[in-house]
């Protein structure tokens, strides 16, 4: 296999890595918000429920969560849910791994939503009470205070920790190969097994590095753009 062929073969896997990355970010980031609000809720049952969920999700290795989501429905209901999805998409559209990828996406989204929610909560709680009170004595509504005063300050504060999580996320996508999803590392292992080529496994690092480099630049720009004020 030529270098170009290997690159193309690995790139097919990296597309799957990027898919997991993109979907997790797109669904997990918004999902973190209601979780954050629940964990700050004055309604105790809701607060403790969300705290317990966050505790479990952050307390268990992500790989184990992928196994749980993928296998437990089958163990409980005697019905391989994701296996069926797999077969359906493969037969109908010729798409590989659809069921496995779905399981991975669910696990990743839940996991990252919980991490994000903690970042949001920390950001919101770090805004001084005086900001709310200033808005309040100026006759603003609660929603105006949140949208016009608090939100941007929270965003400024959460961009650095979110950047860290986002960079961790792209590397975490490698975990998907624990249930045989053809992300880039799985592809490289495939080459090692079938073609006895070990170097592509190390070559995958270049893909991650380039993408993380891009993320660092983009997130750094965002951070800089928000640094025009100091709160």
């Amino acid at each position: 296999m030529s270098f170009l062929e290997v690159t193309s073969f690995l790139f097919d896997g990296f597309i799957i890595s990027l898919l997991i990355f993109g979907v997790t970010l797109l669904l997990g980031a918004p999902l973190g918000l209601p979780i954050a609000f629940c964990s700050m809720s004055r309604f105790k049952p809701l607060k403790y429920l969300s705290k317990v969920i966050v505790w479990i999700v952050r307390g268990i290795p992500l790989m184990l969560q992928i196994f749980i989501i993928y296998y437990v429905p089958g163990l409980l209901f005697g019905f391989q849910l994701f296996g069926q999805v797999d077969r359906f998409f493969l037969l109908e559209y010729g798409i590989m791994d659809a069921g496995r990828i779905t399981a991975v996406l669910i696990a990743f989204t839940l996991n990252y939503a919980c991490y994000f929610s903690e970042i949001y909560r920390g950001g919101i709680e770090s805004i001084s009470k005086g900001q709310y009170e200033a808005g309040y004595v100026l006759g603003m509504t609660k929603s105006q205070i949140f949208r016009k005063i608090i939100l941007k300050q929270v965003i400024q504060r959460i961009v650095p920790p979110m950047s860290n999580e986002i960079i961790t996320l792209i590397k975490d996508t490698a975990l998907a190969n624990c249930i045989m999803v053809c992300e880039i590392i799985k592809q490289a292992k495939e080459l090692a097994a079938t073609k006895a080529m070990i170097w592509p496994l190390f070559y995958t690092g270049v893909f991650y590095l380039l993408f993380v480099g891009l993320l660092t630049v983009v997130l750094g720009k965002l951070e800089k753009k928000l640094s025009y004020f100091r709160s």
Partner: peptide, 20 residues
């Protein structure tokens, strides 16, 4: 309550300006 709030104004010790 907001309508009444506008009858009074409060200046804080530590300003509480909106930084952004």
């Amino acid at each position: 309550k907001r309508r009444k709030q506008l009858l009074v104004g409060l200046v804080f010790q530590n300003f509480n300006l909106f930084p952004q």
